[in-house]
Design a protein around this nucleic acid. Structure first.
Lengths: 141, 141
DNA sequence: AGAAATTTGTCCGTATGTATC
DNA sequence: AGATACATACGGACAAATTTC
């Protein structure tokens, strides 16, 4: 771990750590994350805290969870080179379809989507944010 | 209440009920939702379940929560006439800024945003989804 | 087919911390 | 300072879906 863990909630620190492990290749796309019980032991945290951490990554489209099966890693080391969604940062990235987007596209949750983001500025202030999503391929297969 | 509450988790049934109460005008924009403790009593549910229900409405941009203050209603009976985000449904709605959008716009979470959604079809299949967000006004003041 | 083990989902209760009024 | 209200974290229990044997 070797994380400060100060100033932010444990569930967020854990989410950051898991995200980093995905980015570094410790967890590879298509594979399953360790079970919640295992993560509880590893991080010495309760299941609720672990589930909250994983839910963050799920929201980000980094992983997708299936009842009774486990949580799959969706994206790879793109994470490290992925500039994210900050103003002035990169303008596109791949994500796993969230529940809402999956419903719109009528594809399974976790389907890889390309997000292209356009940010319109007014001076230094953000005036509008536009995101366009398209399906890249299907997932799991 | 008088709800079936079957086939869906209690936290979702409760979220649906609160959303309906907002839509019907029982809870008006700008006012605070009853405290979590009160909702616990009303729905005879644990605090975790109530918090999960409220978090759904927060994700939807229907309400915004402030630590130590309470949860404010953001939108009004638009809810009932608001077609939402289904393909073929309406194309715009107002939401409260989620954490990510708030960061991009550099405004407080819950700031009212206008979302305009454009859905491109290929035959009957959705090819792309584009959402544009702009700031409507500030919140709380 | 079916039983058992695994894994995530839901729900409860409690305690403590932190922000606001 | 005190009261109120949300945030975080723990623990336990059972249900539901999947996989494995």
């Amino acid at each position: 771990m070797s994380k400060p863990l100060v100033g932010k909630p444990r569930y967020r620190a854990i989410a950051d750590d898991i995200r980093a492990r995905i980015g570094s290749g410790s967890f590879t796309p298509g594979s399953l994350l360790p079970a919640e019980q295992v993560l509880c032991s590893e991080y010495r945290a309760s299941r609720g805290t672990i589930r909250k951490a994983v839910s963050i990554l799920r929201e980000e489209g980094v992983v997708a969870t299936e009842h009774g099966r486990g949580t799959s890693v969706l994206i790879a080391s793109e994470l490290t080179s992925n500039p994210g969604l900050h103003p002035g940062g990169g303008e596109q990235r791949t994500i796993g379809a969230t529940e809402e987007l999956a419903r719109l596209f009528d594809v399974p949750v976790g389907t890889r989507l390309l997000e292209v983001r356009l940010i319109e500025f007014e001076d230094t202030k953000v005036r509008s944010v536009t995101s366009t999503f398209t399906v890249l391929d299907s997932w799991p297969s």
